[in-house]
């Protein structure tokens, strides 16, 4: 995960380079820097941010840049209503509750914290309780109860602020 200083240094380096575009991806975060030849403007898109503390810096950075864009650019970007995805740690069956008769662990709009169990993924009769790992609000549930999920498949989207 890049720190604010790193990003600033990157911007500077790219500014002075002959590069037009720079993309950096690491553990679910993506940074894209693009240079426009006529006027020096940087655009940065983040599709998701993991739970490290640095995210606050990056999120504020993103907002800053978005603001800039609103002023200077008409290019549309995907609306980002979430900033954390809970991924499946293994191939298996997704269960939204502990028993078929009980209420789901979480529903849309629920507030979760690091320790909140959001679902169970079962493979070979091993039941893996998945915790949210972040504090925030569940804004999207991407898997259906009983559905077969893949390793790394996003299960929930959480808005952390």
């Amino acid at each position: 995960m890049l720190k604010l200083e790193d990003i600033q240094a990157l911007i500077q380096a790219i500014d002075q380079s002959s590069l037009d575009e720079f993309i950096y991806e690491h553990e679910g975060s993506k940074i894209k820097l693009r240079k426009k030849s006529n006027h020096h403007e940087h655009k940065k898109v983040m599709t998701s941010v993991s739970a490290e503390p640095e995210k606050y810096e990056e999120v504020s950075e993103r907002e800053q840049i978005k603001e800039q864009e609103n002023h200077s650019s008409s290019e549309k970007e995907e609306t980002i209503a979430f900033d954390h995805e809970i991924l499946s740690p293994m191939v298996g069956t997704f269960y939204h509750s502990s028993t078929p008769d009980s209420a789901p662990f979480v529903s849309l709009g629920d507030k979760v914290n690091e320790k909140t169990v959001v679902c169970i993924v079962e493979a070979m009769k091993l039941f893996n309780e998945i915790e949210a790992d972040v504090e925030g609000e569940v804004v999207e549930i991407l898997a259906e109860n009983g559905e077969l999920v893949e390793y790394g498949q996003p299960l929930f989207r959480v808005k952390t602020k």
């Binding site: 009769k125 039941f127 893996n128 309780e129």
Partner: peptide, 22 residues
């Protein structure tokens, strides 16, 4: 994966539960 049967009837069972990060 993990039930034990004798003469087609259940003799023993195993339940594995885990808490893990990625």
């Amino acid at each position: 994966p993990n039930d034990l049967l004798l003469n087609n009837r259940k003799l023993a069972g195993i339940l594995t539960e885990m808490q893990a990060e990625q």
